[in-house]
Design a binder for these strands. Structure first.
Lengths: 170, 170
DNA sequence: CTGCCATTGATTATAGCTGACCTAGAAAAT
DNA sequence: ATTTTCTAGGTCAGCTATAATCAATGGCAG
């Protein structure tokens, strides 16, 4: 009972592992039946364990022949140095510092020019939106947003680790 | 077997692929018979999968010797792409609609998976930050952020600067 | 005790599909 | 030339099967 969500998570991860592709298609209703729970439980699991921040994108359709597609973003980026990106960012970061970090990551080819652009735009946007806030508050938010975005991208490299853990845990 | 609409869509796409030209001519009635469904089902498929937004134009004629012609539009300049996506987004957009749009852009290879992930994270972030706002206000902000990010991507020059050049330009 | 995570079910939203009715155009009848 | 008829295709409301959301509750760790 206590590990319903965990079991469902494991099931989905296994399915993902088994697939040739980097995604699985499920039917919420079937899954709910398989685990003998209410359908909305599946949404909970997806929300709490397969978010974009965690490297997944969910697509779905309702109605007849509806489905839920869980896509694992898995471009193979080598290089491990970003393990400490979070540390580099810290609790707060200025726009200027953020730019320098992105420049560095692009040089290391951990992100592309286009990805850097996206992140800069997102940061500027929240900067504008929060221009009335204190400087410190804003820089905390920059740090939060930046971490989420970079972690999302870097999570890809954790794939092998996660897989090993999963196999051991079987 | 997945579903009727999907099968019909695939059939049309195959026909398009097979043709020398960038269009196919069909007869609604024949298709309906082939897939054993009511004729209006064909209209549904065309409406939901071959709209102008998705890069297609439909021409048709009624009466004897009626037909439906599906034309695939291909060449689009970056500027047109920008215009187009801006229109698609509109003044406000829900998270769900945004997701669908990103799905579509990825299918058309206008953005990569990683870029899509970044945008989803940015949207969710501002969603969380602004959860106290009215729904409409939030959806306006989603639209604004989404437009900025997509415009940025569509306009970016694909100049393949080498790492050396980048470093020199610092 | 308190806060967070898990679970549930009621309510709402939407894709897919059908069928009844509508319209355009060509050919046949006058 | 005009009217009639016939053969397509078009529209739309509405039903069904799903999925999403949300608010309420339970239960465990700190």
């Amino acid at each position: 009972m206590r590990n319903l969500s965990h079991n469902i998570e494991q099931y989905i991860l296994n399915r993902l592992d088994g697939e040739e592709e980097n995604f699985v298609s499920l039917r919420r209703k079937d899954l709910a039946e398989m685990f003998e729970c209410v359908p909305s439980q599946i949404n909970y699991v997806l929300r709490s364990r397969f978010s974009p921040e965690q490297g997944y994108i969910i697509e779905s359709r309702r109605g007849e022949h509806g489905y839920i597609k869980i896509v694992k973003i898995s471009c193979v980026t080598p290089e491990e140095k970003v393990e400490h990106t979070s540390d580099l960012i810290g609790k707060s970061i200025s726009l200027h510092e953020a730019s320098r970090l992105l420049e560095y990551l692009e040089d290391r080819e951990l992100i592309t020019q286009r990805e850097r652009l996206l992140i800069e735009i997102a940061l500027r946007h929240s900067s504008r939106i929060w221009e009335d806030e204190t400087n410190n508050r804003r820089e905390e938010m920059f740090a939060d947003l930046l971490k989420r975005m970079l972690k999302g991208l870097m999570l890809i490299k954790d794939e092998k680790k996660t897989r090993r853990e999963r196999i051991i845990s079987l």
